[in-house]
Design a protein around this nucleic acid. Sequence first.
DNA 1: CTGTATCCAGGGTGATACTG
DNA 2: CAGTATCACCCTGGATACAG
Lengths: 128, 128
Amino acid sequence: MDSTCEPYGYDAFRRTCPSHAVLEMLSSKWVYLTVSALRHGRMRNGELARKLEGITPKMLTQTLRVLERDGLVRRQVFPVIPPHVEYELTALGQDLAGLLDQIRSWSERHVPEIRNARLIAERGREVA
Amino acid sequence: MDSTCEPYGYDAFRRTCPSHAVLEMLSSKWVYLTVSALRHGRMRNGELARKLEGITPKMLTQTLRVLERDGLVRRQVFPVIPPHVEYELTALGQDLAGLLDQIRSWSERHVPEIRNARLIAERGREVA
DNA sequence: CTGTATCCAGGGTGATACTG
DNA sequence: CAGTATCACCCTGGATACAG
């Protein structure tokens, strides 16, 4: 069983390596956005729902549960009525957030170039 | 039509913003790995297939086509027999590669912490 | 307010076989 | 070698309604 990728260390290129699964877990736009949103402090469920435009209650909960399970997000429940729940990044989550947020920012910054590339690609297909 | 997110600039949190679609396109483990693999220079189709362990021909081609369409990868065909095709990152792709590769590296670096978090989470569920 | 419970459509993904 | 074509299938992800 080489699931640890030993003795050469972890290698995400190997499908049996745990780091491959971690990478897969991170490959979700809702994970990106959730972690990025929490980057500047704790937020309530409703706040997140409004910030992550278009997310359904199910996906929001599901995403938060995964992040909580993997130690990236901490969930705090206040036993009051109506319910009050807050989410915040753990130290590990904050470490990751710096990277994920850069990707988000990159996506925003390079829209024009990508849009342009797509237009050129389409033209090429028309000619053919 | 606020698809450009104007007048406040692009915002990936808004589902109608083009940057949201870009983020979604990047949310794929095969995109991560393909771009990371190409980071150190051009590669042939077969080389990529071997490097990206477990990828099917279909997914490899599909991923490369998306990256090519969006201007992140350049495809060069040598008209010889047997066929010879090489892929390499464009300038835009290299810019992105730096970020994506950091995520990949992060995934490898933090496996122990995440594994540990999962174990604790499981224990919690058992108690309940 | 913060979720859970269903249901459902759709397509991403893989496996396989095959062609130029 | 590089890629296409097909098929099936899971299962994600969305919509909705409802509960504590």
